[in-house]
């Protein structure tokens, strides 16, 4: 169920820059999708798994535990999305990076927010316009933490 759909796979063969253009006029963030992943680090600076672990539980930043169960000490873990225990052995680093950057490139109808996207969003509140939910380095931190979940 969580595998890349065939139709999407075709669309992602080759190179795709940022998110598809739509409603908002913010310039797309730059990264390169290849196949089912984003092979290169968004910053070139290695992620910090300790910071990543804090980010996935932080209500104002990742707040991944709102929807996912994760093997860490955080109260009220949600079950809107799949349990992420072991996700580091199911998915490669490029695959994890693509899913945190913009899950909608994997599954166009998913409820999971894109954490590194500013283009093509609708009616974004003033305070949050033009900036992604996580910075490029925060995405790397989260990905590096997920990679440890073997």
């Amino acid at each position: 169920m969580h595998h890349l759909h065939a139709a999407c796979a075709v669309a992602f063969v080759g190179v795709l820059l940022g998110a598809p253009a739509a409603a908002s006029s913010a310039p797309a963030l730059q990264y390169t999708v290849a196949g089912d992943g984003i092979p290169h680090s968004l910053t070139g600076v290695p992620g910090d798994p300790t910071r990543g672990k804090a980010l996935v539980a932080d209500r104002k930043l990742g707040n991944c535990v709102a929807c996912h169960q994760l093997p860490l000490d955080a109260p009220f873990q949600g079950n809107v999305g799949p349990n992420l225990a072991g996700v580091g052995s199911r998915l490669s680093v490029p695959q994890l990076r693509l899913r945190v950057v913009d899950m909608k490139l994997v599954d166009a109808t998913t409820i999971m927010p894109a954490f590194y996207r500013v283009a093509g969003l609708n009616d974004v509140a003033q305070d949050f316009q033009g900036r992604p939910m996580l910075s490029a380095q925060q995405v790397e931190d989260v990905v590096t933490f997920l990679e440890t979940l073997k």
Binding site: I111, A114, L121, N122, V124, A125, M133
Partner: peptide, 14 residues
């Protein structure tokens, strides 16, 4: 049914 906001979600999804 329209997705909106930085979280890009609709009433219908939740």
């Amino acid at each position: 049914e329209t997705r909106r906001g930085q979280l890009d979600m609709s009433c219908e999804q939740c």
